[in-house]
Design a protein around this nucleic acid. Structure first.
Length: 402
DNA sequence: AGGTATTCACATGAAACTATTCTCTGAGTTAGG
DNA sequence: TAACTCAGAGAATAGTTTCATGTGAATACCTGT
């Protein structure tokens, strides 16, 4: 495109008013609505646990768990925001720190987590060079600077435990023992239900104080949520009730994930907008649904390390004229490809594990079957939709220099 | 015919190895008093 | 002089290999009828 044309294009783009959206923000997952439907009970429970903090009594440790997109983070931040407001009003020394453990800079090591926490409290800690113990000291000093009640919200705490181990939780709860005037309490948010069992078995007295479970939304609840958001996000009359119902049904099928439902709706809106339509139809929604699924798989593939990609490529290319293949064939093909690339192939043992991983990710399906006399193996099928396969192949080829 | 043993082609587990990343320590640097 | 930064060494960790053992059922082989 010529420079001039491009300028014109951008100007046009800016000048053009959206035909569909009134306030797209409302469909973003970070958007925080005024009310959270169908979470009244959970809100109450959390509020109950946290309320003592307004009298400057240390609230119990709280674990919030439930699948993705069930509104955990939203609900917790909603309650704590209110708490903050109230504390400010009454001039209470209550401090609430929210930290998402998925962030790379936090989740890697204990050092980084504590350093980040200290930073949140206004201390600066060097990236490296200090013993972990000392970072703890800095953190503790920061809390002790004045008498405060600190509530830590650790989102996606399972990531932290996976990387660092459960001891970190234990250490955090024990910080209180080295505090004189201030107090620390924390809220853990996780979508991995195993975490609860793990913590219960490990730190029996430290974290099982209180737990709040967020059940998945059902289709009816989802459609109500969507309706509220859609009213804010879309212009009047660009969608029909049926669209929301269908969207909710889609998402409900996938374990009631509200985030997915909102994504889906937003994407449908964007697609309609791009087409210049002034109505979001259920056809567009179907299209959005496909695209979302594809994006999900492509993204997962792209995140894989090189040899996993090679294995995926081996599988896809072996499947060109077959419905399914066995581990042995995949390994053979994979070895050939590695040879072609002058790369040292991984052992069969490792490839077998990679296949297991890809299966868990939902990129392929690997079922163990026995051919009797002719051995036991795993039967592998691709879960990448046929329509996307060429795109995936292209992507992998570019990525792997094939 | 019916029962038992064998066999294949991997799966699955555990231990050992390795390359990378973290942590720690002491020494050097800087800024403020 | 306190506070901070940095480099090098040792420790921890993730990713892999090596070695060992396990597995389900079609087939081969045996047994007694």
């Amino acid at each position: 495109m010529l420079e001039k044309g491009l300028t014109k294009y951008f100007t046009d783009y800016l000048g053009k008013e959206s035909s569909i959206f009134k306030n797209k923000e409302a469909l973003q997952s970070r958007y925080s609505p005024q009310t959270i439907p169908h979470r009244e009970e959970e809100i109450e429970k959390i509020a109950n646990v946290l309320a003592p903090s307004l009298k400057l009594e240390k609230p119990s440790t709280l674990l919030v768990y439930g699948k993705t997109g069930t509104g955990k983070t939203l609900t917790v931040t909603h309650v704590t925001d209110e708490l903050k407001k109230m504390a400010e009003l009454k001039n209470l020394p209550l401090k609430i720190v929210y930290l998402n453990c998925k962030m790379k800079k936090v989740s890697d090591t204990e050092y980084r987590l504590i350093a980040e926490l200290a930073k949140e409290l206004g201390e600066s800690v060097p990236e490296t060079g200090l013993p972990t113990k000392q970072v703890y000291d800095i953190f503790i000093k920061a809390i002790e600077k004045e008498k405060i009640l600190l509530i830590l919200i650790l989102d996606e705490i399972d990531q932290l435990i996976n990387k660092i181990g459960g001891d970190i939780i234990y250490n955090l709860t024990r910080i209180n023992q080295s505090l004189n005037r201030s107090e620390l309490s924390f809220i853990g948010i996780t979508n991995d239900l195993k975490v609860k069992e793990f913590l219960d078995s490990r730190n029996i007295s430290s974290l099982n104080d209180e737990g709040v479970l967020f059940p998945p939304y059902d289709a009816l609840q989802l459609s109500e949520i969507l309706e509220k958001r859609a009213k804010i996000a879309f212009k009047d009359g660009v969608y029909e009730q049926e669209l929301l119902t269908k969207c909710a049904a889609y998402a409900a099928k996938e374990h009631g994930d509200a985030r997915r439902a909102l994504d889906l709706l937003r994407l449908a809106g964007e697609l309609a907008e791009r087409k210049g339509a002034n109505l979001v139809t259920t056809n567009v929604l179907d299209e959005a649904f496909d695209k979302l699924g594809i994006d999900f798989i492509l993204e997962a593939i792209q995140k894989q390390p090189q040899h996993s990609k090679l294995v995926i490529y081996s599988i896809i290319s072996s499947l060109e004229n077959k419905e399914s293949i066995d581990t042995g064939d995949v390994f053979e093909k994979y070895t050939k490809i590695c040879m072609g690339l002058k790369q040292k192939p991984l052992t069969q043992r490792r490839v077998s594990d990679l296949i297991t991983e890809l299966d868990t990710l939902g990129i392929i399906e690997a079922r163990t079957i026995s051919h009797g006399r002719y051995g036991k193996t795993r039967n592998i099928r691709s879960l990448i939709p046929p329509s996307t396969t060429p795109k995936t192949v292209k992507l992998l080829k570019e990525d792997l220099d094939l």
